[in-house]
Design a protein around this nucleic acid. Structure first.
Length: 687
DNA sequence: ATACCTATAAACAGGA
DNA sequence: GTCCTGTTTATAGGTA
């Protein structure tokens, strides 16, 4: 043990030293010897609870944002339905953005104002009017608005929907509370992100990162948006009620439908996440169904942005609407601003979604299997969220295959491979393949998460065998020495850089124990290859059956004592009479340049190697004499002499003679799959 | 309950 | 003797 620790430390040190410079792609195994990225990036030190909490907040914020967005959009659509879209190319109006005030405590933040100025959306005269309106609004806020109910937290960001106390309805309160909640969540989320270093808010930046209005909005875009919005509205009216995840918009300001779950978050909203603004099929309760329910009318107040005129009844409201908000420049401009608001909210939503995706990508919590959560410190909720997210944005996260029961960490799991999550210092790797053993990790699995594992000291959710296989397969020649495997581990995973204690031993054990790993020797040492077919079978060298280390009778020893024998075998079949015709035929059939480096990745190699070993064993028994060392010279790259293949109990198929050899060489994956090799004779039986 | 997989630890051996 | 590499065994947790 002490020795082990000492060697590990030493090896690790050399590995780190080896890669102490430069950054290269993780998957470039060829660069192993060239060095690797130092990977000394501090691990992401986010608690699982924090992550889950942040994501939850993010989801909630998104939901609320959607509500707000849709509500605004509905107002906008309502306007478009009353007014002719032809006017959309009208000049910006003289009066503007009261609705903007709904978004920020300052009605329009200085930043937003600056943006408006920069975008030159408004003429100087319009800007002047805008400023005046802003001042008036602020005065109105101060003078007209009664203080919010005591039970409501003071929130300057709440919409400035003025309400008289007798008009306060539960929905209004709910809406305000929802807005408050959204803002609070947003604030918390931002703080969380700040804590995590994922977001930096500049000093002058408003607390709420509302993007400046009219950002990137050019007139043509506005026109297009107008068209889309209006068309969407039309389609919506014709479509009728069609439930979707965002079914909560219409009635949130409707006093006539107080019981509607206007503000209840639809569970699908979080899971779906799709905001099909332009294909709205969500107004299950349109105002057509409720004649006196109008998005611009609620609680006896005109909801036209900036209006808030008190209307006794719906008829008076309609009258007011037609008179005060008729089709004119002002209304058009207000619509335009409202469009910008909606657009801005969309942008914000998109950014938040993107941020959420980035977070989940970063955390590698994507799972198609909710049950894949049982990890020590896993991000259970994150996994769930990730599923939701993946559904929400199919194009968002690349699917990462996952192994069934990968032990350790966060995972983006796609259809195939490894799963799981747990933050660092999770103890031993304890996971297994639940569905099918040894489902291989695709390169994409690790590739997609490579940055994460590279920097975060998180144990990867892959078994050692999977990782070893991956390392070997990623190598240009599908072969690695043990030390190169070590390097790959340290290069790819921060966990294995820091937690160097026992994993090297585990690698060695796995290499020896898994049948899929084939050790091949050449003049310069030994390297390991992988038999992928065998890997998929997931067999271990049978335990309990001693692979006795018997140097005198061991194949290795024989080879060691008769190195020329093997060389002769590879170099020329003429020298290897033990090789029967079937084996040779199988080799020729598969065009396998036996034991050349190029062939090492061939899945049949393992079987062939075993077969050859078997044949050799038989041959040794008969020809226990040295052959002349007449191996032909070969280039170093090709001088791979498989002097040694791993000694292991024979598999049934491998012990069944020439025919079985041919069969295995032909890649019959299911061949003898379920047979128990325990029943077959083994080498030691011959002792 | 059983078999198997996986991880871990440890002992041991050969070779450089 | 030390270190690396490789094999083997034992143990324990987990899963089907």
């Amino acid at each position: 043990m002490m020795q082990e620790s000492g060697t590990e430390a030493k090896s690790n040190g050399s590995a780190i030293q080896n890669g102490s410079g430069g950054s290269n792609h993780l998957l470039e195994c060829g660069s192993l010897r060239e060095g690797r990225s130092n990977g000394e990036t501090p691990a992401v030190d986010i608690g699982a609870a924090d992550l889950a909490h942040a994501q939850q907040q993010q989801q909630q914020a998104l939901q609320v944002a959607r509500q707000l967005l849709l509500q605004q959009q509905q107002q906008q659509q309502q306007v478009s339905g009353l007014k002719s879209p032809k006017r959309n190319d009208k000049q910006p109006a003289l009066q503007v953005p009261v609705s903007v005030a709904m978004m920020t405590p300052q009605v329009i933040t200085p930043q937003q104002m600056q943006q408006i100025l920069q975008q030159q959306v408004l003429s100087p005269q319009q800007l002047q009017v805008l400023l005046q309106q802003q001042q008036a609004l602020m005065l109105q806020q101060v003078i007209v608005l009664p203080p919010p109910p005591a039970r409501l937290p003071q929130n300057p960001g709440a919409p400035i929907t003025p309400f008289t106390q007798q008009q306060v309805a539960t929905q209004q309160l709910a809406f305000q509370q929802q807005l408050l909640q959204m803002q609070q969540l947003q604030q918390q989320h931002l703080l969380s992100l700040q804590r995590q270093g994922l977001l930096t808010i500049q000093p002058g930046q408003p607390a709420l990162p509302l993007q400046p209005l009219a950002q990137g909005m050019i007139p043509t875009e506005l026109q297009q948006l107008w068209k889309e919005v209006t068309s969407a509205h039309t389609a919506e009216e014709t479509t009728g009620n069609n439930h979707s995840s965002l079914d909560l918009t219409t009635t949130c300001v409707s006093s006539s439908a107080p019981s509607k779950t206007s503000l209840i978050m639809n569970p699908h909203a979080s899971t779906n996440g799709q905001l099909s603004v332009h294909t709205p099929k969500r107004e299950s309760l349109s105002h057509e169904e409720h004649p006196h329910s109008h998005p611009l009318y609620g609680h006896g107040v005109c909801k036209w942005p900036g209006c808030e005129a008190v209307c006794e009844d719906f008829q008076s409201f309609l009258k007011h609407l037609n008179s005060e908000h008729a089709l004119d420049d002002r209304s058009t401009a207000q619509c335009r601003v409202q469009m910008q608001v909606v657009q801005q909210l969309e942008l914000q939503l998109a950014k938040d979604k993107e941020r959420l995706q980035a977070m989940m990508t970063h955390l590698h919590v994507k799972s198609t299997e909710p049950k894949a959560a049982p990890q020590p410190l896993n991000l259970v909720s994150s996994v769930t969220l990730s599923k939701s997210a993946s559904e929400a944005s199919p194009q968002s996260l690349p699917h990462t295959p996952t192994t069934p029961t990968a032990p350790l960490t966060p995972v983006t799991q796609g259809p195939s491979v490894i799963t799981t999550t747990s933050m660092h210092t999770v103890g031993p790797i304890r996971r297994r393949y639940s569905d099918k053993y040894n489902v291989p990790i695709s390169s994409a699995d690790i590739a997609q998460n490579q940055e994460f594992y590279k920097n975060a000291e998180v144990r990867p959710p892959f078994t050692y065998a999977s990782l070893i296989r991956q390392a070997i397969l990623e190598s240009p020649e599908k072969q690695l020495t043990l030390n190169e495997i070590y390097n790959w581990f340290t290069r790819m995973f921060a966990y294995f850089r820091r937690n160097a204690a026992t994993w090297k031993g585990a690698i060695r054990t796995n290499l020896s124990l898994h049948k899929c790993f084939i050790r091949v020797e050449d003049e310069f040492g030994s390297f390991w290859t992988v038999d992928d077919e065998e890997f998929k079978r997931g067999r271990h060298i049978q335990r309990g059956r001693p692979r006795k280390y018997c140097p005198d009778e061991n194949f290795d020893e024989l080879v060691a004592h008769n190195p020329s024998l093997i060389k002769n075998m590879q170099s020329s079949h003429a020298y290897c009479t033990p090789l029967n015709a079937a084996l040779q035929a199988s080799m020729a059939e598969n065009s396998i340049p036996l034991y050349t480096t190029a062939s090492m990745g061939n899945p049949t190699l393992g079987n062939l190697a075993s077969a050859i070993r078997e044949e050799l064993n038989g041959a040794m028994e008969h020809t226990n004499s040295n052959e002349s060392d007449s191996s032909p010279g070969r280039s170093p790259m090709q001088a791979v002499h498989p002097v040694h293949v791993k000694e292991e109990p024979l598999d049934p198929e491998e012990a069944e003679g020439p025919l079985s050899l041919v069969t295995t060489a032909n890649h019959s994956p299911d061949f003898d799959h379920d047979r128990d090799y325990e029943d077959e004779p083994v080498n030691e039986d011959m002792e």
